[in-house]
Design a protein around this nucleic acid. Structure first.
Length: 545
RNA sequence: GCCGAGGUAGCUCAGCUGGUUUAGAGCGCUGGAUUCAUAACCCGGAGGUCGGCGGUUCGAGUCCGCCCCUCGGCACCA
């Protein structure tokens, strides 16, 4: 049997000086859910590879470390661990965590640069720009003009300065890139992002500097040296981009390239949609299939900023997870997140609405009423399917099949929310079916009517089996809660079972008549909209005496 | 300033190349039904000038022009 097509998905490598917040966590959670879904579809966990990690060669790592009496490496170690711990705490199961300071990365980068030097795609030239001597940094032409050619920090005049620098022939790849984007509509997604890039590609691309000088300043000695020229180092962004390739540039992992998806935030679109593909073209490496640039979360309708104090940090996310379960939080992020062109709002009221509608009143309540009836009317033993009355609107074999097809199609175009909503559709149908068939009424007639018991069995089996299928589709979003449901229903799937088998109503993984079902605890407790917002200090209560 | 996206029910949005509906969905709200379930679920309703004005057409959220408003991108920035 041919092994399933490999699926390689990446998150950005995060700037190691940051503290993990909703932005980093969101990107990684989406990648995790997508990877879980792809493993499910392929039925082979090794077929999918999720990479995340940290970007550690920025100059600021050196200065921050010094300011905290630490070494750059120790400083990076500490922060990289914070990211790793954050993602683990959100149940994001990455297959590898790459750090750009690791030998397996930094030792490979010079090889790619050398190849580009050999072909002439990277060449030595001179860089001229406005230099702020006090800050020891260049300002862009625009920034310099806006500052009236004076240092924005100390007001001293900027100076035109020239120094040796290596350039990448970005301009040489403009037409090929344009042709590729036009020929592959899904290369840059969502469409708004694609339009942005196409718009900017209408102007002529300049070659770009890909090195920085090494001086006496320790901050400039951090990073990867240009091959054969220790007076220059590889610009941190170029170094960083190569992580996606270095990590799988090994004999065992080579088959994962090209990546299926580079999932990124919209801020780094240009690097991923233009510079990175051009570098790959120059190296004659295959291009990733999709660059997906998601938007931002805003908080209660306001842009998040440190000055407003409305940043949703890891602590706040943990508070939500504690209050509504980690999977409740994941569900909100995954189904309401800024994946389409627009930014999304993390509002408490909306969180409660979605949580109650989809989870507490949705799958939670539905699973509860179904299992309760099986316990009540069949002593918790899964009844025999039999033939339920054929209702045209409630052909669950067809409903589940359609949901699965849509699920896979949505995931292929990276419409995560649409995929998971397929499961909610099934639940909606089950709730409707229960109302139409009213098994609870039927149960009262079984004494007098011998066929009623069979009919009741058929109805409840249908409901339970449909809920099971929905739970399979939801599992990549909510692995823990769905596992809990499977545990009480005795239908935990074997490892590496294909979606096609798992999600087939009455298929090879169907609920087995005769196995037992417990009522179990409520999967998702209903949330009170009036309760205090998690992670905030409650307002002082009025004196009680 | 330049380039681009968009303004449709309280909210979030579907409505592809104009005439299948009297403009739809989900959530919220409200009336009813029901009791297996987490006061959950099911059914019905609310009648939104489809941003404004003008035009093309037998016929326009759906095409054209003008105006108002919102938002995104503008290159080395992680």
């Amino acid at each position: 049997m041919p092994s399933p097509a490999p699926y390689y998905i990446t998150t950005p490598i995060y700037y190691v000086n940051d503290r993990p917040h909703i932005g980093h966590c969101y990107t990684t959670t989406v990648a995790d859910a997508a990877a879980r879904a792809m493993r499910l579809i392929r039925g082979e966990s090794r077929s999918t590879f999720l990479l995340t990690g940290t970007d550690e060669h920025a100059d600021k790592v050196v200065t921050s470390a010094a300011a905290h009496n630490s070494t750059p490496q120790a400083w990076a170690d500490k922060h990289a661990d914070a990211f790793r711990a954050a993602f683990t705490s959100l149940n994001c199961g990455f297959d590898d965590f790459i750090r750009t300071t690791e030998p397996r990365h930094k030792d490979k980068v010079p090889g790619y640069i050398s190849a580009l030097l050999k072909t002439g795609d990277i060449y030595k030239g001179v860089y001229t720009g406005w230099y702020d001597a006090g800050q020891e940094e260049y300002l862009t032409e625009t920034a310099a003009r806006e500052a009236n050619f004076k240092s924005p920090i100390n007001g001293k005049p900027l100076v035109q300065r020239t120094e040796d620098c290596y350039f990448f022939k970005l301009g040489a790849y403009q037409e090929r890139l344009l042709a590729h984007i036009n020929a592959n509509p899904h290369f840059i997604q969502p469409d708004a992002r694609r339009q942005e890039v196409l718009g900017r590609l209408r102007q002529t691309l300049n070659d770009i500097p890909v090195s920085r000088p090494v001086t006496d300043d320790p901050a400039t000695q951090w990073g990867v040296r240009m091959p054969g020229d220790p007076a220059n180092r590889v610009y941190v962004w170029i170094d960083a981009l190569f992580n996606y390739y270095t990590t799988v540039d090994t004999p065992e992992r080579k088959h994962f390239w090209p990546a299926a998806v580079h999932l990124i935030g919209k801020d780094i679109l240009w690097f991923h949609a233009v510079i990175w593909p051009a570098l790959l073209m120059a190296l004659n490496f295959p291009l990733p299939k999709m660059i997906f640039g998601h938007g931002w979360w805003v908080s209660e309708g306001q842009k998040m900023s440190k000055s407003l104090g409305n940043f949703i940090d890891l602590e706040r996310m943990h508070a939500y997870a504690d209050a509504f379960s980690l999977d409740g939080l994941r569900w909100y992020l995954l189904t309401q997140g800024p994946l389409s062109g627009q930014d999304a709002d993390f509002s408490h009221a909306k969180f409660i609405e979605v949580y109650n509608a989809d989870l507490a009143n949705g799958i939670g309540n539905c699973a509860s009423r179904v299992s309760n009836m099986i316990v009540k009317y069949f002593d918790g033993v899964v009844p025999t399917p039999g033939n339920a009355a054929a209702l045209p609107d409630y052909d669950f074999k067809a409903i589940c099949a359609k949901a699965s097809v849509e699920y896979v199609a949505a995931l292929d175009r990276f419409d995560i929310a649409c995929a998971f909503n397929q499961a909610s559709e099934i639940i909606r149908k089950v709730d409707g079916y229960i109302n139409v068939t009213a098994p609870f009424k039927l149960a009262k007639t079984v004494e007098a009517n011998p066929t009623a018991k069979q009919e009741l069995a058929a109805i409840l089996y249908t409901c339970a089996e449909a809920v099971r299928v929905a739970s399979v589709l939801m599992a990549p979003a909510m692995p823990q809660k769905m596992a809990a449901l499977w545990s009480t229903w005795n239908c935990t799937p074997g490892a590496d079972t294909k979606l096609a088998d798992l999600a087939a109503f009455g298929g090879p993984c169907a609920l087995k008549p005769g196995s037992t079902v417990a009522k179990g605890d409520a999967l998702f407790m209903r949330a009170d909209p009036a309760a205090p917002i998690p992670g905030t200090i409650p307002a002082p209560s009025a004196p009680t005496v």
